[in-house]
Design a protein around this nucleic acid. Structure first.
Lengths: 221, 221
DNA sequence: TAATAATTTCACCGACTTTTCACAGAGTTG
DNA sequence: CAACTCTGTGAAAAGTCGGTGAAATTATTA
């Protein structure tokens, strides 16, 4: 989790950073809107905490600027009693807001909510076609020569990982890490069995899954 | 034009009522959020004027309540110095806001603007038909072979989300996020139970809700 | 408030999925 | 070619998931 903290008060930045790092996150800081835009151009953040009142470029204008090139979730930090009319004069592109004074805990709760929201609905619309093999990730459908293939969950995930990394040599270890999860502890050969099943379901298109002896597998068309 | 005026100060209610009636409108009054919710359940209003600070149930909470069963336009009335509330007001589904002290004339101008907006908006009559299953999102009606299906609120929302995302594989997590809200904290399996109930109500068209083992569900015709 | 309805949790069971394992056979090396 | 390593495969064991009914909890209505 990578966070950008934007506020002109160093104290506030420090508090938020400490809390974010305590939770295992990584934090960058910016002291005004200009800096924030610059940082966002150069780095990818999971979420931005943005103060409204700042010198040089205010938080709202900064969000507008950032929105020109990024859809990163933004949480606004605003002091009670600040004038917000301009905030609503036009569409704001922030995802949530917190009013000062706030507790770091409250802010982090919002961060988690926003992250959950933005990662929960990934924009997928990937449909791949390789000869008579059709792979629709969004709809979770696989067709072999127009016939729907009934795959098990792991087979779907394995195939999706293969097509999204076609042409790349994938070690068993990497497959276990990416498809099974980093916490899988078990036999390498599990991959083999699933590849076998997947190949069986892909019929003639089993040929796309190439064995790399001593290494693993590769999806290649 | 039927208006509901919600404010704990009788003086303010009286002033607004007088102005509304002068313009040929009809006005009901409520002294707090609880009353307001109750009135909205029992009557249909063209617009609601809602104060923020009130005893028993505040304006925001009241709107949140009302939104569970009605899309009536709401204009928030907030005292100056509570500006930060605007942000929250918009997020929970109010349509405009006015800060006190206000002139009745100003308020009525907002009322007209909101009404114009809500009536000018082309009626999006979303009605889907899948064989003998008819889903009318606006009217909140579902017909199974011409027979009206009596669904519970969650069942409606779940079905609506399904038909609006037909063909898309939906994880339980995503369904919880989108149908229940990002702040739902509870069991995954809740989705299963609601799917079961929904399927039961859809009779033979239960077939449209496909189980995706290891993932969730998909609405597919 | 009481009654009624809706929502959520939970545990059981059957069905399906995943994992392990041993053996066979293919590929590699000296 | 013999010894070795590696992968494909089938089958059995272990594990997981989803449908369901019912109970518990919460919200709504009268």
């Amino acid at each position: 989790m990578k966070i950008l903290i934007v506020d002109d008060e160093e104290m506030i930045r420090a508090v938020l950073r400490e809390y974010a790092e305590f939770e295992g996150g990584e934090a960058d800081e910016a002291a005004d809107g200009m800096e924030a835009v610059q940082m966002c151009r150069q780095n990818r953040y999971d979420v931005v905490l943005m103060d409204v009142m700042m010198p040089r470029l205010d938080g709202f204008s900064a969000v507008k600027e950032i929105r020109k090139f990024s859809q990163v979730p933004v949480i606004m930090l605003s002091a009670r009693g600040e004038e917000y009319d301009k905030l609503f004069g036009f569409e704001i592109g922030s995802d949530d807001y917190v009013t000062k004074p706030f507790s770091p805990k409250e802010v982090m709760a919002r961060v988690h909510a926003v992250l959950k929201r933005s990662t929960a609905a990934p924009e997928h619309h990937e449909v791949y076609e390789f000869e008579g093999l059709r792979v629709d990730v969004e709809g979770r459908n696989v067709y072999v020569d127009g016939e729907k293939a009934e795959l098990t969950p792991k087979e779907y995930e394995l195939l999706f990982y293969f097509v999204q990394n076609r042409g790349v040599a994938l070690s068993r270890e990497r497959l276990l890490n990416k498809v099974w999860g980093y916490d899988f502890y078990g036999d390498d050969r599990t991959v083999d069995t699933h590849v076998k099943m997947l190949r069986g379901n892909l019929k003639e298109y089993r040929k796309f899954i190439v064995t790399l002896r001593g290494l693993g597998y590769k999806f290649e068309t």
